[in-house]
Amino acid sequence: MIRVVLPVGLSTLAGTGREIQIDVPGEVTTHAVLDAVEQEYPVLRGTIRDHQTQQRRPFIRFFACEQDFSNESTDTRLPDAVASGREPLLIVGAIAGG
């Protein structure tokens, strides 16, 4: 199981805790994880990435194992620690304000 930590706004919207666990078939990439998240929680479609272009929304960030994957290709393999469930993929609402 892949562990995903959602920002508060989205965990409230989805009616989950901050961390969800999800099956991701095949290679564990950001794209594959988001597909699985949206399949399990359709209410999150369009809230993390654009419905049409699949582009990350501007104020969303993807962190894992203390690395920033936000601007990597979403087809990049996530670290083994994420694929094995030892570490979560963090979906983060960026700081915006002062």
Binding site: P7, L10, G46, T47, F59, I60
Partner: peptide, 8 residues
Amino acid sequence: SMGWFGQT
């Protein structure tokens, strides 16, 4: 809606 997460 919210700037971070778009429209619901």
